[in-house]
Design a protein around this nucleic acid. Structure first.
Lengths: 158, 158
DNA sequence: TACGATCGTCAACGTGGTTGACGAAATAGT
DNA sequence: ACTATTTCGTCAACCACGTTGACGATCGTA
């Protein structure tokens, strides 16, 4: 059974994962603020990513993010107020309201992608590229696949 | 400069770190609920850890957790209401209110430590112990040291 | 056509955080 | 010994993000 190593107690693992995540997110937003996006909050990047290049609706956005449609709607409200998203009527279904990125939304998302790549390079410079890749592979292996619903292939690089 | 690998875009790294963290936390709380601690929220484990065996005050707790003393005070209020913490007067300083763990608080923290160790073993069974250790070492290397103010040596194993 | 499912929204609420103010108590300085 | 400053806890107002429940409008279907 559990042969806990006293030198490496299990509670350090979540703490280190959180630390790594928060470090990247904090560095990202410090740089984003420097580039004119000081009003983007940590959550917003995930939301923009989930909206994607084709847009969605609030209900679908909620499903992608794993929250209620009401919560998704309120987050869209804020991002509309900040100028990152816009709403439009769906001509084929009067109930639906399309949610699309504005040019500012695209800009924030593009810059986030570039900055994240640079931060990953910084980790690679410290650890070596193969160890960064190993972290990614290992975490993929122990993490449920539904954590990656945000993947929008072919969207980021450009 | 940034030689981004299109197969491993940088934004996957924070997503995977978050996924790993949330997976561990979700599994922890599912098991804690099974063991009679369904009212413990993800934050509470960090707070109990930061209170430690000797107790603290709300102000000091806020510093340890990196939040304001008011936020720390409100969280203590909730944990007192749930029976995990208790307040006591400091005989040497009438301004201070000592915050201590109750027996229920100790129980929740002990169980969390055991469960975390088991979850780490589960990762080790999938990845191999040396790769789990490598993740921890790597994350330590790229993460500011002040992320580990919660370390209370010698407290957990027992 | 009538019914049930779906979409967006409103309302009320919970949790975790912020800043500002303020009285009470400890401490430093003269 | 008496001020002046600092510190501690708390109150109040507010913000961000989430929940559940309800409800009118609209769509698809029996």
């Amino acid at each position: 059974m559990a042969t806990a190593d006293p030198d490496r107690p299990g509670f350090l693992l979540p703490l280190l994962l959180l630390a790594g995540f928060r470090t990247l997110i904090d560095d990202l937003h410090a740089e984003l603020a420097r580039q004119g996006h000081s009003d983007l909050r940590p959550l917003h990047g995930f939301v923009l990513q989930a909206v994607g290049p084709d847009g969605t609706t609030a209900s679908e956005l909620g499903q992608r993010l794993g929250v209620s449609k009401q919560a998704a709607g309120k987050t869209v409200d804020r991002l509309v107020a900040l100028g990152y998203l816009e709403r439009a009527d769906d001509p084929r279904d009067a109930r639906r309201k399309l949610v699309r990125m504005t040019e500012r939304g695209y800009d924030g998302l593009r810059r986030s992608a570039v900055i994240f790549d640079q931060l990953r390079d910084r980790w690679a410079a410290t650890l070596g590229p193969e160890r960064v890749a190993a972290i990614e592979d290992d975490l993929r292996a122990v993490t449920p696949a539904n954590w990656f619903r945000l993947d929008v292939p072919g969207w980021f690089g450009a």
